[in-house]
Design a protein around this nucleic acid. Structure first.
Lengths: 222, 222
DNA sequence: CGGTGTTGTTAGTCGAGGCTAATATTCGCA
DNA sequence: TGCGAATATTAGCCTCGACTAACAACACCG
């Protein structure tokens, strides 16, 4: 089957859903893609006919090996482009995702390889997401969410979800980027903010923000 | 009307045809685009409905002011991308056109401006083609063809048509790029090759090649 | 003068990718 | 138990952008 831009988008979001353990259903896909449910039904039928997805045991869809390979190619182009735009073109952190979202469908193999070489074969994009290799295995495992870190622990940020430019701008403003360490403070009950210390300054982060942050506990507050 | 990738392609080639003084007719467009005549008829109808093109006096189509503005935006993105790919990414001369042909439809305004600034607001792309400004007038005038230069004259290459990668590779191989000077030698009759001296070496160029070269006579052979 | 291209259009079809409206199913809950 | 909300699919329609087949108009040429 022909991998048009639309097909690539569907495969990509199915890939994202399944690797996060969320069910890839008609409605979740429709919401994420801003498209009606019947449109998703129709496209899924085409994807099944093209042997790119299949119905999987419980409730959702799964990618076939061919579908996963195609999805990984798109994800690779996306993350390479984000890295390229940030490092070479100087596009700010919060804008690279949107630009890559469009360009990823127009990047040739040849140019992808040139960019990859120019960047020195990077393995992470600016948000800390791993860049799938052109061939060979890829590990998409998400680190633990910041919300899982106990009070008093020291936490290393590894990945910051790239979907919300405003949130990204705010996080960058307070110094929250992949690689930095934060001290996890008090957790306000009933969905209240989580207090974290970054660079010596305390910040209260609401759930929408902490949800974007993943990493690992690396000890306790010194 | 919505400027899809297809619409942009049509406007661009109509622009190229009219600026070269060739008639923009159904069949020339169809040939250049590798598409059937009825497809062109249908698209032209849409473009007319969208006030982007109109029937012009003799035989062909013309761009309206809106259509020309849109075409110039595409041409600008194309040539900026060619320049960017060549200078920043290191894509070889003969490949930049093909890559830009696809990327031009996916380049946002925002990114276009960043690239323009990064390159220092270039006015010519790697083939010597002028880059239309974002706003304001643009002069697309083609210099004289090399075939018009008299024997014994010295000729400065200004533009090299970018359509044929093989030809470009060959021309680059013998040092024929925009900016270089050549000495025009004997013209073999009956469509035979034209002898030119580049960098001290004589080359016989067939009509398909000389057709790609434009510039200006700058004196006589020293 | 009559064929033979070339050119352009109309008519009809197709696939991709979207939409709304209507129709099951199923699930949670009063 | 039964009602409403969420979920998925079907049916039917639309636009875009391509295609082939057929036809009209014209030009050139023997």
């Amino acid at each position: 089957m022909q991998a048009t831009g639309a097909v690539e988008d569907y495969l990509k979001i199915i890939y994202h859903l399944v690797t996060k353990g969320e069910p890839a259903t008609t409605s979740t896909i429709a919401r994420r893609l801003g498209v009606s449910s019947p449109s998703v039904s129709a496209m899924v039928k085409r994807l099944e006919a093209g042997a790119l997805v299949e119905r999987s045991g419980e409730g959702g869809l799964a990618l076939t090996s061919g579908g996963k390979a195609e999805a990984l190619r798109v994800v690779r182009r996306h993350r390479l482009l984000e890295t390229f735009l940030a490092e070479v073109v100087g596009v700010p952190w919060d804008e690279v995702h949107e630009e890559a979202e469009v360009l990823e469908h127009a990047l040739s193999d040849r140019l992808e390889q040139r960019i990859d070489a120019l960047l020195g074969h990077p393995v992470r994009d600016p948000h800390g997401d791993p860049i799938p290799p052109r061939t060979g295995p890829h590990d998409e495992r998400w680190a633990d969410p910041l919300t899982a870190a106990p009070t008093g622990s020291r936490f290393r940020i590894e990945r910051v979800s790239d979907r919300d430019p405003d949130a990204l701008r705010y996080l960058a403003g307070i110094g929250l980027r992949p690689g930095v360490h934060v001290d996890v403070g008090a957790r306000t009950p009933f969905g209240g903010p989580l207090w974290v210390t970054v660079d010596g300054t305390e910040h209260a982060l609401g759930l929408p923000l902490t949800d974007l942050l993943h990493g690992a506990v690396v000890g306790t507050r010194p």
